[in-house]
Every structure is written in structure tokens, then in C-alpha cells.
Design a protein around this nucleic acid. Sequence first.
DNA 1: AGGCGCATGTAAGCCGTTACATGATTCC
DNA 2: GGAATCATGTAACGGCTTACATGCGCCT
Lengths: 192, 192
Amino acid sequence: MPSGLGCALLGLLARGEQTGYELSRRMRRPVGFFWTATHSQIYPELARLTEAGLIDFEIVDGAGPRETKRYRITADGIAALVEWLQLPGRQQPVRDVDTLRAYSLWLLGRTDALGVVRAMRRRYVEQLRVLEGELHEIEHTPGAHDPSQMTFGNRLAVESGLRSARAGIEWTDWMIARLETTTGSGEDGPGE
Amino acid sequence: MPSGLGCALLGLLARGEQTGYELSRRMRRPVGFFWTATHSQIYPELARLTEAGLIDFEIVDGAGPRETKRYRITADGIAALVEWLQLPGRQQPVRDVDTLRAYSLWLLGRTDALGVVRAMRRRYVEQLRVLEGELHEIEHTPGAHDPSQMTFGNRLAVESGLRSARAGIEWTDWMIARLETTTGSGEDGPGE
DNA sequence: AGGCGCATGTAAGCCGTTACATGATTCC
DNA sequence: GGAATCATGTAACGGCTTACATGCGCCT
């Protein structure tokens, strides 16, 4: 069974043939909204998937010191991806830096804490803006409403990101309201 | 500057003295809601933080083949944590398995896709239930409304998790509605 | 007698980040 | 002439997971 990155690459190649370079660009956008990887991870992973028979490639002529390879997913690759989709969902490890920061935010004075939270909010707002642009593009492409078309998969992923970004904005707004209105012990920060 | 795990441990020790074992339990719950780590990661990290002077320990007598150490955060440790809190928020790497799956969900027939999405929904509902229990506990402890008390930090983290879980439920509900109502090409799955 | 909780560590291997390395073509 | 894009790889290092390893005290 391929790794998370392997399945991300299979998911991209299920949409059509692509070179390693094209895959690494698509891993930045749009896949980067929910899974990140750089080319130094992608090229070795493509070699592993090839060895496992889940993808293959043909050499085309390109502009570099090395051969340009155009990758394709194989029937075995499609089967592995479909099998992975249906695996019973084990609890995925969570690593949320913003929440980790919030957990220790009581150590900061009110002014500094507000600064940190407002900076977080700005990032969520920016992310929402970008994803709304993506959704706008997707909604005008054919197949976005047909569950058997790949565009539908793009739409599902964007809808997930939108809801995460909105949840982040609501959360930071809630924190800002708490920090602005509560008086606590009447001081600006932990007692000193 | 300590790693993410290092800052999680500093955040726990800022709340009071603890042994490595106690820290590893607290990393499962409640910190596990937003940052996961096992004891095999925690013990080496505690050694690194000790060497950096951010924490120290005293040996107490315990029940094992090795000495039991009770860790404390130092003044340098508090300073490092406060500095980390205020770092400009660089874009954090995202790795969301559920969204990655949704991205390839168009490969499955409608029935199978619904099964996958309903299983995801069940996990979000369960997580929401657990976090609502946490919130109930926290709200009855003193300091939960005072931004300078550590209980306030606990509350911020739980509020983050609650919003994520609710966003997940909304997202899966939206997908379920789409999969149930749309007819697409009139078939159950990609054309074969 | 066996299992669970307390308590601490090491080792192997994979995953991920950052930096190093090369070289053609195209655009400014 | 220089920067960006196309195109592919390797190396070093640190993070993370899984498994191995030990041993006391308490409860059933």
C-alpha cells in the first residue's frame, strides 16, 4: 500500500499523464491546499511507484541535462488507489501549530495575545480568498456536479478547505472577542 | 528555537512540574487533540530541552528499573516559549488525509463513495462528542474566562477542535447530499 | 499467575525539509 | 547579460512511527 504522498501522486495521475515536474507544480497548487510535498520527495516516490508497477513512464524529449519522463497510472495503480480509498479510516495524526500556540497564549499579555491572534486571522482570511477564487474557476468547468467526473473531486477538496478557513476565522474572531471584553484579574497579562 | 514538539512540552511544563510519563499521557489527552507524539519521541526531546537549559529535573523515587525524573520549566524555557508564540506565522504544512481521499473519490461508484463519506462523518461526530465533554469539564473550572490563567489556554484549544469537528460534519453532510441527489451520467460510478 | 499502570529508554526505518547540482530555452 | 521556467536528480539532517527492552507494585 503506497504512502500518503504516493496516493496523492496516483490521484493526480488518475486525472491524466504528467511529467514529474508537472506533478510537483500541481502538488503546490491545487493539491497543496490539503497535502504538501516538494520535488525532492516526489522524484524518489515516483521511482518507488514505478518499481511497484502502479505507474509507468515513457521518455519524451525535453529541455534539461536529463531525460524527461511522462508518467501514466497503470491498472494496478488505479486498483491500489481504489483500495486505499476504502480502507477503514484510522485516526489520522493531528499537528495544528495555531492551536498549539493558543494553548500557551495565557502566558502573553492581552496586547501581545491579540496581536498573535489577529495575525492568525489574517492568514485564514487570505486562504479563504484564494480558495473562493479556486471554487469560482471550478464551478464554471464541466463535470463539477457529476460525482463520476474528476472535476467533482477537485470541488470536494476545495469545499473542505473553504470550511476549514471559515472555521479558522470564526475561531479567531471568538478569541479576539474574549480577549477584548474580559478583564480577568484587571492586569495586562499574568501576574508579575 | 525548539521544535513543535519541544514547544508542546514547554507549554505543558509551564502549567506545572511533571514526569516524562505524565507528559506522555497528557500528550495523548488533552494535547493529542491538536498535537500528537509518543513516549519514544518525548524522552529524547526532554533530554534536548534539558541540554538547552529550557527545562531541568530532579530525581524522585519511583517504581521502575530506571530513575524517575520530575521536570520543571526554567526562566529561559518560559522566555523561549513566549518568543516562539510571537514568531511571525509562517505557512504551516497541511496534510489532511480525508480531503486527499475526497480528491480521488470520483473513481468510486456512488454507493462506495457514500460509504466512505459516511464513515468519515462518524469520526467527526465522535470527535465532536469527546470535545464537548472536554468543554463541559473546563467551563466548570476556575480561570476559564481569565486570559491570564492556564485554563483559558485549554479552553482556546478545545474551541478550535470543536470548530474543526463541526466543519468536518458540515463538509461530509454537504458531500452526502451531493452524492444522494445528483444523477450525473445516470450510472453508479465512472463509465465502464 | 497474569494483566495493568507506572516509568524510562533504544533502534530501525521511513517521511519530510533544505540545500546542492546541472543545463537548456525563453523573455526582458 | 541575467532571471525565470522547464526538468531531474542527490545528500544531509531531523521528525515521526513501530517495535524492542526492562522491571516494580497492585489488583483480581
